[in-house]
């Protein structure tokens, strides 16, 4: 089943930098799709189109279509708030909100209008358990979100997204600021979560891409160079540029 169908997506920023050029891609549900490539290749821009977060950026022109469950999300009349609740996002640096741990997880639900304390409690616990953080923080939920380690903070950010019960989770270099132990915790967590969610991951290195990919897409200078299922691309890349990047000749 296809979660996203992207057709001829092009974006040009106000400073005339073309950021994405004619992207065509289909993203499968309940799988980890890995977007990789050198910095500035368009991965982050692509992710921010999918939840319309780049509405904030100075976009000059945007053409093409992005179908999410069959509806075009680039439609200006679309309810972006509703969209963003369905498509959660985790950023490269852990950004706990300046609130308590509990409030961080409950934030999205409270903003969505949930006032029932019991429901909130349940949702927070369930999200923290899914993010394998519950055992570490259950006794200090009213501490500041900053009072835990970086790895815990990043899992808190993930729990915050999970609490909203989204369909898609996007992660933009989620482990780039973390130590190897925290990184492997997050990676194994993602492998479990793909049973329930569609996961789009922009890893910060090729090794992680190869470890995690059910599907892989190689982005270079705003172009989608190569896209295929499985780990084939890392063993037998079809495109010369992909090969060069994987073998470490640039990037």
């Amino acid at each position: 089943m296809k979660k996203f169908s992207v057709k001829d997506l092009s974006i040009c920023y106000s400073d005339d930098n073309e950021s994405l050029r004619k992207i065509n891609i289909e993203i499968e549900a309940n799988a980890i799709t890995v977007l990789f490539g050198p910095a500035g290749g368009g991965k982050s821009t692509f992710l921010r189109v999918l939840n319309r977060l780049n509405d904030l950026a100075d976009v000059k022109t945007m053409t093409g279509k992005v179908l999410f469950n069959g509806t075009n999300i680039l439609d200006p009349k679309l309810d972006v708030i509703e969209l963003r609740r369905k498509i959660g996002m985790v950023f490269s640096r852990p950004v706990p909100l300046p609130l308590t741990i509990y409030e961080n997880v409950a934030y999205g639900l409270i903003m969505a209008g949930e006032r029932n304390k019991k429901k909130l409690d349940q949702a927070v616990e369930s999200a923290l358990r899914q993010a394998v953080l519950w055992d570490e923080v259950y006794d200090r939920l009213s501490d500041s979100g900053f009072a835990i380690s970086g790895g815990q903070q990043q899992r808190l950010c993930l729990a915050r997204v999970l609490a909203l019960e989204p369909e898609v989770i996007m992660l933009d270099e989620p482990t780039s600021a973390l130590d190897p132990v925290s990184t492997s915790k997050i990676e194994s967590l993602l492998t479990e979560l793909k049973e329930k969610y569609t996961i789009i991951l922009a890893p910060h290195n090729v090794q992680q891409a190869a470890r995690m990919a059910d599907y892989a897409a190689f982005f270079l200078m705003g172009e989608l160079v190569e896209y295929s299922g499985g780990k084939d691309m890392f063993l037998t890349p079809k495109d010369k540029r992909t090969q060069d990047y994987i073998t470490g000749r640039f990037g």
Binding site: L53, L56, R84, L97, P98, Y107, G108, M111
Partner: peptide
């Protein structure tokens, strides 16, 4: 800016 993006990405207005 991450704070704002995080807030918005959670579906806050």
């Amino acid at each position: 800016p991450g704070y704002r993006q995080a807030g918005l990405a959670l579906g806050a207005t």
